[in-house]
Design a protein around this nucleic acid. Structure first.
Length: 478
RNA sequence: GCCCCCAUCGUCUAGAGGCCUAGGAUAUCGCCCUUUCAAGGCGGUGACGCGGAUUCGAAUUCCGCUGGGGGCACCA
């Protein structure tokens, strides 16, 4: 990834965890960060939050990077680059976390906690039952040195908890304004697990601090976590970054979009035949609207118009119908060559045909996604036996006459390209329309004779792709 | 349960006290165009959650309620 050379102090990050494929909601977060960074000449950092050894998979990291590239969201520093603030995988940053946690321990801002998982579970259950906020009760907070030694001798491996100070927490959110949290609702939280690995809240803060992150742009599900983060920044003596929590992406039922809403991963949409520019455009339209009323935008236009401060604070429901509409728009905007390249895998049985670009062009108006291709391209295949409903077109007297005439014209003409074909069709049409037939009474018999169907691409395309010989032979077969 | 966020057509949104008998997009319905299917053009249906307060005047400000969402892990 090549980055901007005109970097200033604006540094933002996108920090996916490789526990699943790139989610649409994550992609939207990535897009907001990207638009902000690229629009401000800032630096975009890609950080892999793989601290959960159970669920993190390297193959998923690869697929996330792959999907980000497919979307055209590039980064300046990340696991695949050599940046000054690396490494960019949290699992490779253990030493940094260790140093920082030791510091907090040494300063008494954190303490070892020997409570077992079972004990904690029970405490939580009791708190819930009693109607209290299920936060840590502070059992290990005031353990004496002796008590600690005692537990160590028992062979207990402590986790490290942050000692939440007894003062209110304030921070500004760029979208939500002033936020205030009481320390009573927070409770000492784990910063290092008993296996020695850093917890999420801790590694995020240490990384944001040591990577020089200036703006943290993330989903609103992190809004309450931010209170903890601010506390950690302060305890560590680092400057608190600016925060912006954007709205969440919702499923049709109004809850946070998740697997049970169906396809939620970027690669799912890729496979369904949506274009990357569609996804980018659509994701940007959720919680944001362009100042002019033009909604179909490419990445350059987005970059020019988008202002992260204009984001709406209220959540947005993902609407596939509008995504479909947008995709058909982008299908029309994309250069044919690009489309043909992307279309190949959706219509492998056709992609080697020298007329493939023409075929794609002929059905463009019908497509919602590229996966619709085979269905609409079918008329280019072997002719079908006409069903009863369509057979009448070629059985009628005028229908037969039209077909005869078409054969006659085709036998005496060259068929070089689309223009020739258009002329041929026009000629057939002209002849019979002068005799009082309607256009459809002329062209439907030809269509049915050629394909056996009453639906399909414009006739000139059919002629060119089928070729003169094949066209004539199909007309004759009738 | 506690804490936090949010609240305009089904959906995405415009609207920062009078320009709003609330605008656009999508979806939906109808008409036109059309060799088919589409695409396109035109038009219709459709929303300020409720209650107070402030004000000459509130979708727009304030409070309460209701509703929805998120968080409260040795997940991220």
């Amino acid at each position: 990834m090549t980055g901007s050379n005109m970097q200033n102090s604006i540094r933002v990050r996108f920090a996916p965890s490789p526990t699943g494929k790139l989610h649409l909601g994550s992609a939207r977060t990535a897009l907001f960060n990207w638009l902000f960074a690229r629009g401000q000449d800032g630096t975009l950092i890609l950080r892999i939050e793989d601290t959960d050894p159970e669920r993190s998979k390297r193959s998923l990291e690869d697929s996330i990077l792959d999907d980000l590239r497919w979307l055209g969201l590039d980064w300046d520093e990340g696991p695949d680059t050599c940046g000054a603030h690396g490494p960019y995988r949290q699992r490779e940053r253990a030493e940094t976390y260790r140093v920082h946690s030791q510091r907090l321990l040494g300063e008494g801002k954190a303490y070892p906690c020997y409570c077992t998982l079972e004990e904690l579970e029970e405490k939580k259950r009791q708190a819930m039952a009693a109607g209290r906020t299920p936060i840590y009760d502070g059992t290990c907070r005031r353990l004496s040195e002796e008590e600690r030694r005692g537990r160590e001798l028992q062979g207990l491996k402590p986790a490290i908890r942050f000692r939440v100070p007894d003062h209110e927490i304030f921070f500004e959110d760029l979208l939500h304004g002033s936020m205030r949290f009481s320390p009573d609702v927070i409770g000492d939280f784990i910063i290092v697990r008993s296996d020695g690995s850093a917890g999420f809240n801790f590694s995020v803060v240490v990384d944001d601090a040591t990577m020089g992150i200036s703006h943290v742009i993330r989903g609103e599900d992190h809004l309450t976590n931010t209170a903890r983060h601010v506390l950690l920044f302060e305890a560590l003596g680092y400057a608190v970054p600016l925060y912006l929590h954007h709205s969440l992406l919702l499923g049709p039922d109004g809850s946070k979009m998740s697997k049970r809403h169906g396809a939620t991963a970027v690669p799912d949409y890729r496979e369904m035949g949506y274009l990357p520019q569609t996804l980018i455009n659509y994701l940007a339209l959720l919680s944001w609207s362009p100042p002019a009323e033009k909604e179909v935008l490419d990445k350059d236009e987005l970059l020019r118009l988008f202002d992260i401060g204009d984001l709406s604070p209220s959540p947005a429901v993902f609407d596939k119908a509008k995504l479909d509409w947008l995709n058909s728009k982008h299908l029309h905007m994309a250069p044919l060559s690009e489309l043909v390249r992307a279309a190949g895998r959706f219509a492998p049985e056709w992609s080697d045909n020298p007329h493939f670009p023409l075929m794609v062009e002929s059905v463009l108006d019908n497509l919602v996604t590229l996966s619709d291709l085979p269905r609409y391209l079918a008329p280019f295949g072997p002719a079908e036996v006409p069903t009863e409903q369509v057979a009448h077109w070629v059985r009628s007297e005028s229908g037969r006459a039209v077909v005869e005439k078409a054969i006659d014209i085709l036998e005496n003409r060259d068929l070089g390209g689309l223009e020739d074909a258009k002329q041929i069709i026009a000629e057939i049409k002209r002849d019979f329309m002068e005799k009082g037939l309607k256009a459809r009474e002329v062209l439907m018999p030809v269509r049915v004779a050629l394909t056996g169907k009453d639906k399909g691409p414009p006739l000139p395309y059919l002629l060119v792709v089928l070729g003169l010989e094949e066209s004539i032979s199909r007309l004759r077969e009738l």
